[in-house]
């Protein structure tokens, strides 16, 4: 038998408690940041002032076109030179959040564009101030439309979070790498890590597809 069951049972509990906790923190932290920052970016990109909307758009295009890994290196290695010191996990959350904000801002933008023109006109007819038009009329509808796509990005962030293991965060994959390098045997820990991601990601994507169908009508 090539597969070592004894070792599997020995490492399984550690892997799925310690590692899992960090993966969850990274995923949720990154997602919350991406969802909030993305909304602000989407609003800034709709600004009537081109000196606001253009640079914000260009920066986000740049972030979206370059690898998350290199961005993580920048946050992890370069920012401390400027006196910004953070834990590796915090660095990772900021990296994931900013990277995926460039994606979620497009989701919100599509959501805002999808709000029927009549809603805007009705708000003007009711003499609603512009700020309240956004807060109480447009955004609630836009965010609702954006939910399924945001759900997909939550899953995507979850799946990309192993990249944090490269900047020394000990998540499920980072932990598996540590265990593997101890014995120079990666088969069991990596397979468990892979199965764990499948086990979470597949039901989650089925759930998001249902949500899509329900909100679709």
């Amino acid at each position: 038998m090539i597969w070592d069951w004894d070792w599997t049972l020995e490492i399984l509990p550690e892997l799925l408690t310690q590692g899992l906790l960090v993966t969850l923190q990274a995923t949720l932290g990154g997602a919350v940041l991406a969802f909030v920052l993305g909304l602000f970016v989407a609003l800034l990109r709709r600004s009537r002032n081109p000196f606001v909307s253009r640079p914000v758009g260009a920066v986000m295009e740049f972030v979206r076109s370059t690898p998350l890994l290199v961005q993580l290196f920048v946050v992890y290695y370069v920012l401390p030179d400027f006196g910004v010191k953070m834990t590796a996990l915090m660095t990772g959350i900021i990296g994931l959040g900013v990277h995926y904000a460039s994606y979620t801002s497009e989701v919100y933008r599509a959501g805002i564009d999808g709000v029927p023109k009549g809603q805007w006109e009705a708000a003007i007819a009711l003499n609603l101030p512009r700020r309240w038009t956004w807060i109480s009329v447009v955004l609630p509808q836009a965010v609702r439309r954006s939910l399924p796509a945001l759900g997909n990005y939550l899953i995507a962030i979850f799946k990309e979070s192993p990249q944090l293991s490269i900047i020394t965060v000990v998540d499920v994959v980072g932990f598996a790498r540590e265990l593997g390098s101890e014995r120079f045997r990666y088969l069991e820990p990596m397979t468990i890590a892979g199965l764990f991601f499948l086990l979470v990601a597949i039901p989650a994507s089925i759930f998001v597809r249902r949500l899509e169908r329900r909100l679709g009508n």
């Binding site: 799946k159 994959v173 990666y186 990596m190 499948l198 990601a201």
Partner: peptide
């Protein structure tokens, strides 16, 4: 292949 991350797949193919 869509359910796991590229990094895990890479490690798996190369190391496991």
């Amino acid at each position: 292949f869509r359910g796991t991350s590229v990094l895990v797949q890479l490690f798996w193919i190369f190391y496991a």
